[in-house]
């Protein structure tokens, strides 16, 4: 199944790119995703480019705290207390994107290690680890995140830890099933026969082959994580955050939502658009690695 030659790899890559780029919606998703990434990078390294001085805090305006509709001065209007929505959203993207990445990648790394270990070692360890993940699946993830985050103290850091704790079991199960199928494949058998050590087989043969599907899963999960992250912030997980975060930003305008719907809608749309883009991109990537859809 594996194409071992350099040339094979190369033409494989070309075919992969072809499949991906022939999917117009996936490419659109990627473009939007990249736009978010660029925004986040600018905010991180040189916020002045977008006219922002301090991307770590909202700029309040208590002189005119009531939300204003979109105008030429405030393209997306303002939210309570007098926050320029466009600027706030641009700032907040960095926070949401960064934390979500941290959560998904953190969860994926922990999950992958556990999953590969469980599947490769098998036996009691496998059973034990899987029963262990069952425990985490036995609580609705949003509730679990609330409980864990609460127990650790209500802050962004504990929210991140809580969501990693919620997310890693998904990856553990996923990589476990991937590993189980790879373990049976010819080249692992061959490596075993050639006397390769267990650690070597795990890292040299199994990990690289679980990687592509896991990356696709990361892309798809990024959308959900951003949503859950913002939702937690929205229901008031963090007291008085004063940190640009999209869910928290939306909750600021909640009292005005009937007269000033943009205060909730625009930050929400920023999340939706992001989730949409990574979902589209993930679907496109899945087509690339799925041999059935490829032909």
């Amino acid at each position: 199944m594996e194409e071992r030659t350099e040339e094979g790899k190369y033409s494989n890559l070309i075919l992969s790119l072809k499949v991906f780029f022939s999917n117009r919606t996936a490419v659109a998703g990627m473009v939007i995703f990249l736009a978010y990434v660029v925004d986040a990078l600018i905010m991180q390294f040189d916020p002045r480019l977008l006219g922002v001085t301090n991307p770590n805090q909202f700029t309040y305006n208590f002189v005119n705290p009531v939300p204003q509709p979109p105008s030429s001065q405030y393209p997306l209007g303002t939210t309570y207390p007098g926050i320029n929505l466009l600027q706030a959203i641009l700032e907040a993207i960095r926070v949401d994107l960064g934390y979500s990445m941290l959560i998904v990648v953190g969860g994926a790394v922990i999950g992958a290690v556990v999953g590969i270990l469980a599947a490769y070692v098998g036996g009691y360890l496998d059973e034990l680890l899987m029963r262990f993940t069952d425990i985490f699946f036995s609580v609705p993830y949003l509730v679990l995140a609330i409980a864990v985050g609460f127990a650790l103290g209500r802050s962004f850091t504990s929210m991140v830890i809580a969501l990693i704790i919620v997310w890693w079991p998904i990856y553990a199960r996923y990589t476990r099933s991937l590993t189980l199928s790879i373990k049976e494949s010819v080249f692992v058998e061959a490596a075993k026969a050639a006397g390769a050590s267990m650690v070597r087989i795990m890292f040299k043969h199994i990990l690289p082959n679980t990687l592509p599907p896991v990356v696709v899963q990361i892309s798809l999960d990024l959308g959900s994580v951003v949503g859950v992250f913002a939702t937690l912030a929205f229901i008031g997980f963090i007291p008085n955050a004063n940190t640009p975060e999209l869910g928290y930003l939306a909750s600021l305008g909640l009292n005005y939502v009937q007269s000033a719907p943009w205060t909730v809608i625009f930050p929400g749309l920023a999340i939706t658009l992001f989730a949409l883009s990574v979902n589209l991109m993930g679907d496109g990537l899945r087509d690339v690695i799925d041999p059935r859809r490829r032909s």
Binding site: G227, T231, I235, G247, V257, P261, I265, G268, T272, A275
Partner: peptide, 18 residues
């Protein structure tokens, strides 16, 4: 369904309320 799938649930709620 794709859009709905990408929306955080509170936004769906707010959209319906509005």
């Amino acid at each position: 369904s794709f859009t709905l799938y990408s929306m955080p649930i509170y936004l769906i709620a707010i959209a319906l309320i509005l």
